[in-house]
Design a protein around this nucleic acid. Structure first.
Lengths: 345, 345
DNA sequence: TGATTAATTGGTTGCGCAACCATTCTATGT
DNA sequence: ACATAGAATGGTTGCGCAACCAATTAATCA
């Protein structure tokens, strides 16, 4: 018999269940973990006892003893950005059915916070890590390398991935937008950006590259801020753009749709005809983009896929013992797609 | 001396650091955990050794030995709903600086999934739980009760909270919207709702209650769907509403802003004059609401505060040994606020 | 029915750390 | 210089579980 049923202060353990069910602790362990080498009647008896006692296995002990954590660490730079929602959804949708848990850290776009999070995370023996971008501190990279845990760097293109990179080229996407605007015969083209993280800067670089090649580059039309982006920030930056250029600007690429929506709102207030007199292109293709008036041209990126693909790759790496027959590509491109709607000619 | 520096397959432990630094393991533990009873020169020596070896403490062992996890479990029903982003932000902004980690589960509006998540969570000795709403299964409630972990039920008003409830009355909020619409002389008032979870239903109940008291209740003007809400769903439900009522409807309360934005978009397409001929009120006050054309009347709720307050309450419960001098209120009301803009007269 | 094989079950040990108490050392006062 | 208080450090133990191998039981065949 177990020492008691439940009301003692001590936590129930495998042993308590085993005593009550009159089997050995290890048999209970097997039932809990779903090994199939347990006879049906024994399994049922143990399961009944577990239910009766309300036993919940201690995960820490299990992880310590087995060094299998079923834990995936995820580091994202922002929780306010809708973009990361979709990525997270992709991650959870693959992880949860496989009984994996997700430990999520918000790094606030800070490499130092990121390093701290990685250290904390590695202390929990995660079976995989999903990290945004490739700007980890050297110390962080060293820890990651030493840990031998699968590391997926997502969102952007990473130069020399620690392990595997899932994302797309923001440079190319920025370039494509510039080309689109040029093709639509806009010539005085500006840029509005907020936060200016690595990926935004890459978008801008690609954009600038194409404009420059077409001899249409005028950086006074580039307005940026380190502050986070929002619809209202888009409106105010647009005002700034019009001030600085004295209206000598006929199109703008906004580094995301929130900003673009703000620009659209403000340009309507200024009676600027969109798209005839002024073209606007956003980035991300959030749902509202299609419902703006006029509907917003933008760039669609496969956010959900980046998350789900990252998880799938982790599972591949966990299950395939080593560099087996089909090695996993180091770079996985999730691509992007120009969506031209009514905010450009 | 430690057995080796790093390249062995075995994980570094406290003991390795202790051997290398020529102190006892427990002293290393004290340094790692920041106890101050360690002399400065010893502390420095140990810290240097830790850095040199790249030692990362094993959290599972620590939790097992100390039964302190610094872990907060959070259960939310959806990752696609922007609302939960803000709540999460509030939670993280309090938890992270205190060195607490957040284990987040998505229950997909399913009580069964929620129960499973709670079981998993309780296995990790969390120091607090934040759960959306009060519709846990009896089994889940029993587990929670037995665990003696602080449980904060957030978002809505919960009848008989397991522990503490942080949220606001959706019934009252729905009632306030009905009163607003009535005050603005709308008389053929409809409702558009998606997902229809508990809180949405409460909003509807309050709304219905006031309309009924004013003799303005006509349920044929209530269009709902169990599917998740989105801007496009708002548009299609609005079409349905106009079909069903043959246009005999002069205002609608949408259970969230996404839906309302879709309704607004669709009503413009139908040339319906908003707000003169048709009033629209949303719910949540997302940023886009203010930038719609016309700007959307809605209900502002303190999402961020719900999250941060919930975490604060958990910390209070953790630190105050028991029902000390200042007991914590069982119900904490975060309130709501009607925001009347241009989509209502 | 008995021998042989395969399927179940159990015992022992250690994962890495912190609690607890005992011990050693340093600083202070007389 | 010596006793004493106080601070710093160390030794031992157990947290709850799973890996490993040994012992037991049931199933199969001749």
């Amino acid at each position: 018999m177990a020492k008691n049923d439940s009301h003692s202060g001590k936590r129930l353990t495998l042993k308590d269940v085993a005593a009550k069910a009159d089997v050995s602790p290890i048999t209970v362990s097997r039932v809990v973990n779903g090994y199939d080498g347990v006879r049906a009647n024994v399994r049922e008896k143990v399961e009944a006892t577990i239910a009766e006692l309300g036993y919940i296995p201690n995960r820490s002990a299990s992880v310590l003893a087995s060094s299998k954590s079923k834990l995936i660490g995820v580091l994202i730079p922002s929780l306010s950005n809708v973009v990361f929602n979709d990525v997270l959804r992709g991650i959870y949708d693959i992880a949860t059915p496989a009984n994996y848990q997700v430990l999520l850290f918000n790094t606030h776009y800070s490499a130092a916070e990121e390093e701290r999070a990685i250290r904390t995370l590695l202390g929990q023996s995660p079976e995989g890590l999903i990290i945004t971008g490739g700007e980890q501190t050297p110390a962080a990279k060293a820890m990651l390398q030493a840990s031998a845990v699968p590391v997926i760097q997502i969102m952007g293109e990473v130069d020399n991935p620690i392990d595997i990179n899932v994302g797309f080229s923001h440079f190319d996407a920025g370039a494509a937008v510039a080309q689109l605007l040029l093709d639509k015969s806009y010539s005085k083209i500006g840029f509005i950006g907020a936060r200016m993280d690595r990926r935004t800067c890459e978008r801008l670089a690609g954009f600038e590259h194409v404009l420059s090649a077409a001899n249409s580059l005028n950086k006074t039309r580039f307005i940026t801020t380190p502050e986070p982006s929002s619809v209202s920030k888009g409106a105010s930056l647009f005002g700034e753009l019009m001030d600085v250029t004295k209206g000598d600007c006929d199109a703008v690429f906004c580094c995301n749709d929130d900003l673009a929506l703000g620009v659209l709102h403000e340009s309507k207030k200024m009676q600027l005809k969109v798209p005839e007199k002024f073209g606007i292109c956003g980035f991300n293709d959030i749902e509202m983009a299609a419902y703006a008036e006029p509907a917003l041209s933008t760039v669609r990126v496969n956010r959900y896929n980046m998350g789900s693909k990252a998880m799938e790759v982790i599972f591949e790496k966990i299950t395939s013992p080593a560099d087996k027959a089909s090695p996993i590509a180091r770079y996985i491109n999730t691509g992007f797609e120009l969506v031209t709607r009514k905010s450009t000619r």
